[in-house]
Design a protein around this nucleic acid. Sequence first.
DNA 1: TTGATACTAGACAGACCTGTCTGTTAAAGT
DNA 2: ACTTTAACAGACAGGTCTGTCTAGTATCAA
Lengths: 211, 211
Amino acid sequence: MAPKAPTTTKSSTAKTATPNPSPKERSAAAKARLLAAANELFYAEGIQGVGIDRVIEHAGVAKATLYSAFGNKEGLIRAYLQARHDATSERMAKELAERYETAKERLVGVFEVQGLSFTDPSFRGCAFIGANADAPNIPAVEESSHNYRAWLHALFLDLAVEAGAKDPVLLAQQLVLLYDGSGISAWLDKDKAADNTARTVAAALVDAATS
Amino acid sequence: MAPKAPTTTKSSTAKTATPNPSPKERSAAAKARLLAAANELFYAEGIQGVGIDRVIEHAGVAKATLYSAFGNKEGLIRAYLQARHDATSERMAKELAERYETAKERLVGVFEVQGLSFTDPSFRGCAFIGANADAPNIPAVEESSHNYRAWLHALFLDLAVEAGAKDPVLLAQQLVLLYDGSGISAWLDKDKAADNTARTVAAALVDAATS
DNA sequence: TTGATACTAGACAGACCTGTCTGTTAAAGT
DNA sequence: ACTTTAACAGACAGGTCTGTCTAGTATCAA
């Protein structure tokens, strides 16, 4: 342990690169390691089932660093869920933009992008469903889930409007049902092809709504 | 407290009624109260978040009685999930038999029966999804969930075969997606009309598969 | 009357959890 | 050279959890 960093006494004042980390950079790195550890452990074993000690050990960080960076466990939970939300929405936007042209294609393509995560061996269902089940009544969980659900509905609703659906609200609700159901089957039934099932139904619904 | 049962010294040896509870009857009553308390608390607040002390206090029962009846907490969890499974499957069978005649009607009717629970103020989503999220890696949870999922799939598959669907396996998978999605939306989005959305889509899928 | 059974209340051990605090080390800025 | 910042390791307090154990009580059967 204690890798004894090479003592480069030369004060490297370069601002962009990090030959020698400044205090602010060290702090940011510790925060990122904590967030990565929380993501792995909370997602795999649940929020209540993972203690602070497990997180800091996995991150290789002192306990005081966690409390300095996030305040308390709820702060870490909030940051974990926020990072999940950001990663999911950014990946979805990126993949939809790269893969499809029209709103109609994207409405169906959402399920293909969703299915990309099903083959990940660490896949364990939607993190927000899990957080609501194992840590209800925690404000950070309720608020983050509310934001996530709003994003998911808006994703489908915006595309449904853009695609010219006759009843975009109804179409979006139907597709949300399929999206959640697909995630549940991929998780609990270990059905890695659940996205195909959902996509087929979604295509029929989109066609019927924009005929 | 201690309601001081009327001391009917007469040894009532009647076997069907219970004028004075025998030890076996007292034991069964305590077990039933424990199971009811576990059902309320585990379902409302999660399995990990509810301690043994809360359960015995809510049931009005001593701690030793719980450990004598269920062995340990996992035994209580197993009994709780088994009771949930039994209640759900029995209610579904009963309501489907009372309300509908043909397999086609019942395939769609499942969603109407599911929706009956959405208006219950204590509704908090599927108990097995919740248990898997907040207490993974517990054998009692894994086994009970496996049984429940098998029941759900068989429910739709048997009806799909009976209705003469062209691809009953596919139809059953599609309807399972809708069923799970409907429960998630009713829970997380507090959309008490999610069963209507699901039922409309289900009707279209059943029609298409049996045309 | 006596013995067996099954509940009651509650203390207890041992583990774990969150959050605070002390003291130390290493680097940046001045 | 000196101060400031922020990480480190780890002890600690106060609480909660599961599961065991001791004792006392009430009922039934013989």
